[in-house]
Structure formats: C-alpha cells, structure tokens
Amino acid sequence: MTAVLPVRGPGAAQLLPPAEDTRSAHDRFAGPARTLGLLAPWLVRAVVGLAVAVFAFLAVGPHVLGYRTMTMLTGSMAPMIEPGDVTVVTPIAVEDVTEGMVITYHQPIGDRSIVTHRVIEVDRSADGRVSVRTQGDANEAADPWTATLEGDTAYQVRAVVPELGHAIQALRAPVLTQTLLYGVPALLAGWVLLTIWRPTPETTDEEDLS
C-alpha cells in the first residue's frame, strides 16, 4: 500500500500544535502583583493626604485662622445649605450685622440650640444692643422670636463644604472606626509585601529569555 504525503511548497511554514501555558503560578500573577504594587503607594498617599487635609481643616484651621466649622442638621437653608453640609463661619462685630447676612447664633428659646438662618431685620437699641429677626431660606415664615446678639461678636457664614458632615458622622461610627484602626495597617502591610514580592526588571528579562 502506497502512502501519499502532502508536499509543502517552498518556504511554507510547518504547522505546530498549540503550545501549552508552561508559565508558573508566580509568572501568571506577576503582572497583577506588579500593578497592585504600583497602585498601592498612590492609594495610601491619597488616603493619608485626605485624612491630613480634613484634620487640618477641622482641627488646626480654627485655631490658626480663627474660623469655626458647623454641620447643618436641617434643610431650613436649602438649597444654599443642605443637611450634612459643613459651614465655615468667621467672627464679625455685632454692629456690622446687616440684613441679608446668613449668621449662626443661639436661638433665645427652648434649649438655646445653634441655628443658622438669614437676617431679615436688624434693630439697634440706644444702649448698643443689636437684635435680629431671621428666617430660613426654605421656610415660609420667619423664626418666631427676636434674638438679641450677646457679646461683641457674631458669626457669619462665609463658605459651605457640601456633604462633609456626612463623612464626619460616618467616621464616628464604631464599625468604620474599627475598620480604619485595623484596615490602614493592613493596607500598609500589603503595600510592603507587594513591594517585596514584585519581580525586579532583571528577573523579568531573564524569564523572558528562557
């Protein structure tokens, strides 16, 4: 019996069976590990930088620059100030309070809680006392009281940081506190391990040539 063999033309390449992936598990995971190793330092820096910035804004700034920060709890000043926004207030002389300003003060009734509303009327008495009527931008009626501003200083809203109050409240939650307490060290440890295990350029070149 005569066998007929196919004849390859000149220069034709011989077909080879598909090669199997002979890379080790270390080689297959080297790429993702290298990517994580590159991203981890920037992630840690971003988290630390954000934490430092928030701490400086809330704890250091008021002592150095003289402003105060307060979290809005209601929607009475929406849309200018939404619940969860943080207001930045600075001191001004009581005699400088005018209509249209948004000020923060203690309401003269009930538990004397802090309120942030817009001044709609100012009354100056002969003895120098300054009394104001206020109203929230989202409220249909004025506040049911006339407040006498005590002392020589009032506080005017100068800036609003949206949603920061929600982040502050979340950071005070026990679950998140524990997560930060143990999660940040774990993240740093992972960064160190990825840095140690990350293949060096020399090792990669040798593996590519083998």
Rank of each mutant, 00 (worst) to 15 (best):
A93D: 13
S76W: 00
V4K: 07
L180W: 06
R8K: 10
E121R: 12
A93I: 02
T22S: 13
T90D: 05
I81D: 02
D111M: 08
A51L: 09
T204N: 05
T98F: 02
P91N: 07
L16G: 02
H106G: 05
V52K: 01
T146K: 14
M101R: 06
L73Y: 02
L209S: 12
G128Y: 07
E82I: 04
A189C: 12
I109Q: 09
D21K: 12
A12F: 09
R112Q: 15
L5M: 11
A159W: 11
P185I: 12
P17Q: 09
G151E: 01
A40C: 10
Y155R: 13
T87Q: 04
Y105A: 10
E206A: 13
R28Y: 06
P162A: 05
Y155P: 00
Q135M: 11
T71K: 07
Q14N: 09
E206G: 02
V184E: 02
A126Q: 14
R133W: 13
A189M: 08
A25H: 06
L73M: 14
V86T: 13
S210A: 13
R172V: 04
S131I: 12
R124N: 10
W42I: 13
R68C: 03
R34D: 05
R198E: 03
M70W: 09
P79H: 03
L36H: 03
I196K: 01
M77F: 02
V160E: 03
L187W: 03
E163R: 15
M77S: 05
M1Y: 06
T203S: 14
Q135K: 15
A154K: 03
R198V: 03
D123R: 15
A189L: 14
S125D: 12
A51M: 09
D205L: 15
T134L: 04
V64T: 12
I196L: 15
L38D: 11
L36A: 15
T134G: 06
A154D: 10
S131N: 05
L188Q: 07
V175S: 01
L188A: 15
D27G: 06
A147F: 00
S125F: 02
P17D: 11
L180G: 15
L58M: 13
